[in-house]
Nucleic acid binder design. Structure first.
Ligand SMILES: [Mn+2]
Ligand SMILES: [Mn+2]
Ligand SMILES: [Zn+2]
Ligand SMILES: [Zn+2]
Lengths: 148, 148
DNA sequence: ACCTAGCTTAGATCGCATCTAATTTACGAC
DNA sequence: GTCGTAAATTAGATGCGATCTAAGCTAGGT
């Protein structure tokens, strides 16, 4: 029988505590909704559905509150656009997004040669750069070109 | 007295007609809301407020319907993000946006050296690239650094 | 002048998100 | 272990931006 040095459960708890947040069953369940494999990019409602399965008394308000806190302390990033806000556990600032105009899917992408892009105007303090490409995802590009 | 070759009113009407849209008083008023100087980047409600001033019976549904048509035929672009959708009469694809994290303002920006940016993944059909920088606008950068 | 597809309208309805105010709980101090 | 309290949770109300409905109006072709 293998003894794991640190359980992932304790990791989650620790990452909350070290940021001054209390550890609650609700927060464990919400964080677990992201660890559950998947691609990332989930709506608040996705999170609620997954988390409420193991915690039936969970409230949507708690999901919104907690997602807000997790973004605030830097454990998640928000991805805004048309439609509901998506929450992304991938904090890698070199990854960007592709939004499919036909099926609406959002995928992670990487860019080549973007390091040197810089703002022509002055006076701005740039904290982050988001690049979003739009068009047809690989699936939709090969399944006919009708736009949704 | 100078005689202008084509009045801007007729220009607007023509740009509608040549795209197969009927010309109505409502659509004139809605388009006029963009011609009225300004920086661009207005919400549907901004447009409603400006247009209803000269056309009191105007309905919000018409504003939403018309803005949707104008985007569909390529006379406006949508700019989505946190908060209400903004409509932008500036269709220049080399202009991008800066979103201020303190005051929420959206400004036009231009980038240097973005031509060679390309997608590392394959199979995607890229129709357009949007770059959004986030941080502090010139005003907020010099008025203290509190985040809103 | 007439016809009709296209357009407009008030108000209902929707989806996502936030707020409220009462209750429960995590966790540091003892 | 007990206690006190700030933090967190809850159900439901509320808000806001946007879309839908279905009845009436009109631009523009014939
Ligand atoms: Mn991502
Ligand atoms: Mn713009
Ligand atoms: Zn697709
Ligand atoms: Zn600002």
């Amino acid at each position: 029988m293998v003894r794991v040095s640190t359980s992932s459960r304790d990791d989650l708890a620790e990452s909350l505590r070290e940021r001054g947040l209390r550890v609650t069953p609700q927060r464990r369940a919400i964080l677990a909704a992201f660890s559950a494999g998947e691609n990332g990019h989930v709506t608040a409602d996705d999170v609620f559905e997954r988390a409420v399965a193991g915690l039936p008394e969970l409230s949507r308000a708690t999901v919104y509150n907690t997602l807000g806190e997790l973004v605030r302390v830097g454990l998640l990033q928000r991805v805004d656009g048309a439609g509901p806000t998506l929450y992304d556990p991938n904090l890698d600032r070199t990854h960007h997004h592709f939004r499919c105009l036909r099926c609406g899917s959002l995928s992670d992408i990487h860019l080549e040669g973007e390091e040197d892009v810089q703002l022509a105007e002055s006076g701005y303090v740039v904290e982050r750069t988001r690049v979003t490409l739009e068009g047809l995802c690989p699936t939709c590009a090969t399944t006919g070109d009708r736009r949704r």
